[in-house]
């Protein structure tokens, strides 16, 4: 018989392991911050040189000469995002309403829920490819801002639907009951009372969907393409920020590359700001 009292494991190795893990976790956190700062710094350094008011108000530069600006791309992006918003947000919102209010347990709702999750996880380039086959090919090979907006709407829809469902489910059933018990019709209960009770959450979902699409390039590649002219209407190939960045960054012209970095800085600043806003919104709601 061994003396069991003496056979405990050395605490030195265990402590060493703990110190190692602690060091690794600190290092990992440092890696994350390091890369964030690196990217931010690069975009800031390369992008700030062109930043001036005229950058937002000028037409794109000719290859090789002048700075020009991103006015057309900016307007195109805003118009397309706006159209996508008008298509994607209402449908997403009402889908979320269906899931939370009418179809909590049905098979149909389970199918819808699956599709919403699938659409959320679908690579955005496939959404672009789908919009191409559905719209561009149907108007024989005619690229348009509308096709781009359609693709963006498909990306917004599931995000809005999911957050709407989640946020409505957070509203206690007693509120629904007390509204219905007053003889308030179901649809007024939902739109007038539940929406109001969940308004911060719904806003978060909508902003989230905007932030998801505003940096997207892939779904626009085969739909909106790009354009050198002012985006008067969306039935034509439409200038937009991200594809402009892509084309200019890959071009051999130094001035185009500078514009690409400037536009990248604009988009990044917008998205970082939006993310910070979303964070505070979510925090407030949790409180």
């Amino acid at each position: 018989m061994t003396d069991l009292r003496l056979s405990y494991r050395s605490s030195a190795t265990r402590k060493a392991m703990d110190v190692f893990v602690r060091a690794f976790s600190i290092a990992s956190a440092a890696i994350g911050i390091f890369f964030l700062l690196w990217i931010l710094w690069v975009v800031l350094k390369k992008g700030h040189t062109v930043l001036a008011w005229s950058f937002f108000t000028s037409a794109p530069p000719s290859p090789g000469e002048g700075t020009g600006g991103i006015r057309y791309a900016l307007v195109g992006t805003l118009k397309m995002t706006g159209l996508a918003f008008l298509m994607g947000v209402p449908v997403g919102l009402l889908t979320g309403v269906y899931l939370a209010e009418f179809g909590r347990h049905s098979w149909f709702a389970a199918g819808v829920r699956f599709c919403v999750n699938l659409l959320m996880g679908i690579p955005s380039i496939l959404v672009g490819l789908f919009a191409y086959t559905l719209i561009v090919l149907a108007t024989p090979r005619h690229y348009s801002g509308q096709a781009g907006a359609f693709a963006l709407a498909i990306i917004m829809l599931p995000t809005v639907a999911r957050t709407t469902e989640d946020m409505l489910l957070l509203v206690p059933d007693t509120l629904r009951e007390s509204a219905l018990a007053l003889g308030i019709p179901r649809w007024r209960t939902i739109t007038g009372i539940l929406f109001r009770a969940a308004r911060k959450g719904l806003l978060t979902g909508v902003l989230l969907s905007v932030s998801r699409v505003s940096g997207e390039t892939a779904p626009l590649l085969f739909t909106a393409l790009n354009n050198n002219f002012y985006p008067r209407d969306l039935s034509q190939p439409t200038a937009n920020l991200t594809v402009t960045i892509y084309n200019y960054a890959m071009s051999p012209y130094d001035n185009w590359q500078r514009v690409a970095w400037g536009a990248a800085l604009v988009i990044m600043a917008f998205l970082l700001g939006l993310t910070v806003l979303l964070r505070t919104l979510l925090k407030e709601r949790n409180r």
Binding site: V43, I245, W261
Partner: peptide, 10 residues
């Protein structure tokens, strides 16, 4: 929050 095209350029 950084869009993928910026990861690409960087």
């Amino acid at each position: 929050a950084i869009p993928s095209i910026i990861y690409g350029m960087w």
